[in-house]
Computed example of a mutant assay.
Amino acid sequence: MEGNKFNSKEVWMHFFIWVSIYAFILYQFANEFDQIPFKLLVKLGIGLVLFYCNYFLLVPFLLLKRKLLVYFIVSMVALVVLGFISHEFLMHDRVPPINGPLRPRPLEPAVGLRRFPLLMPDTAIFALHFVAGALTRIYKEWNRSEVLKKEIENQRVNSQLQFLKTQLNPHFLFNSLNAIYSLSEKKSNDTGEAILNLSELMRYMLYEANGDKVSLASEINYIENYVQLQKLRLPHTATVQFKVTGDERNKEITPLIFISFIENAFKYGTDYKGNTHVVINLLIKERSIEFKIENTIGRKKRVLQSSGIGLTNIKDRLLLLYPDNHELLVNKGETLFTVLLKLNLV
């Protein structure tokens, strides 16, 4: 059974717990009464065996499989039988105690000894070990279940992120190819540069953006290449700006986290005369980043089924990747559309 396996950490943990507890108990007896009763050693040994019988057998095969009645009956029988045997055969000292001569007297505890719980009735001693075994095993199974839940959740998140990313890449490629097609239609001399620019963007997406994090400097360079590609496509880009404030060195960020906002800004930031107004500001702080982008609402919006993929995608990714570490504010005015995204660097 998988749950019955002990890893090295658990072995050492159990070892140190038992050594600490039993060493303390035996030291108290040896120090105060100059002897360690043989009865005590046998009872501790039986209790230890009972602990692991419950830990490895009864709890996993009965209790955790909801065979509660059988578990209760077996437990009671075991405790009563062991208590009876211990009472009958260990009632008197029949061998000399450790570090002391034979004392042919009943092993009835003196008044001072009564405060030691391990000289309580034998059944109660065994019951303590038994309950401890059950609680320890239940805790182990609960902890294992929590770890498994986290692994499943991580797999679910990774799968969902991968799905969102497969949506993002074709969406991005579709928009970029449209931009290059527009240049080729105009017989623009910038078509070749745009193709090289696109190849650099795709290289980043294929080879660098596959990890959970990329350097902030790489992401900024990617945005600069994308903005440059759009400038090549659009006729009037005097009011297209990308400004970075702060130090991007030694900082990492989730890749492609801003691109959907930028795509939509360029898509809807051009008026009927072909003038494009897109202003992007990236403010880098010690432990956070503020990304702000604004664009004019110049072109009549088409049905949002095609453009909505990007914004829905980024909102889903933010919820998965920065659940408690982001703030997204979207403001749509009469002529200006603004997005402010604050990310805590984690």
Rank of each mutant, 00 (worst) to 15 (best):
H171P: 00
P235W: 10
A179D: 11
N225I: 03
K149V: 11
L183G: 03
E224L: 10
G192T: 12
G211W: 01
E219Y: 00
L198N: 05
Q241N: 12
R156G: 03
K213D: 10
E151A: 08
R249Y: 04
K150N: 14
S218K: 14
N225Q: 14
T239V: 03
L196Q: 11
E252D: 13
D247F: 00
Y181Q: 10
T237A: 08
K243A: 06
D247H: 00
A179G: 04
K149L: 15
L256N: 08
I223S: 06
N225A: 13
E200A: 14
G246K: 02
N178Y: 04
I253H: 01
E219G: 08
H171N: 12
E141V: 11
L206A: 14
I257N: 01
V279N: 11
D271R: 11
T191L: 02
Y204L: 11
D212G: 09
I223E: 04
S218H: 09
T191M: 09
L216A: 13
N189Q: 10
L168G: 02
K273I: 01
S145A: 14
Y181C: 08
R203I: 08
F266H: 05
H277Q: 12
Q160Y: 11
E263P: 01
K251T: 07
G246A: 03
N221H: 10
Y222R: 02
Q155K: 15
K231T: 08
F258N: 04
A238W: 00
N158T: 07
R233F: 14
N225M: 08
I253Q: 05
P170D: 03
L177N: 09
Q228T: 12
T239F: 09
I253E: 03
T166Q: 14
K251M: 04
L164C: 12
E248G: 03
E248D: 09
L201E: 06
F266Y: 05
D212T: 07
H277C: 06
E153Y: 11
N225T: 04
N178M: 12
N158L: 08
G274N: 09
L183C: 05
V278S: 01
E146H: 11
K186V: 04
E208F: 06
Y272G: 09
N154W: 05
V147I: 14
Q230D: 07
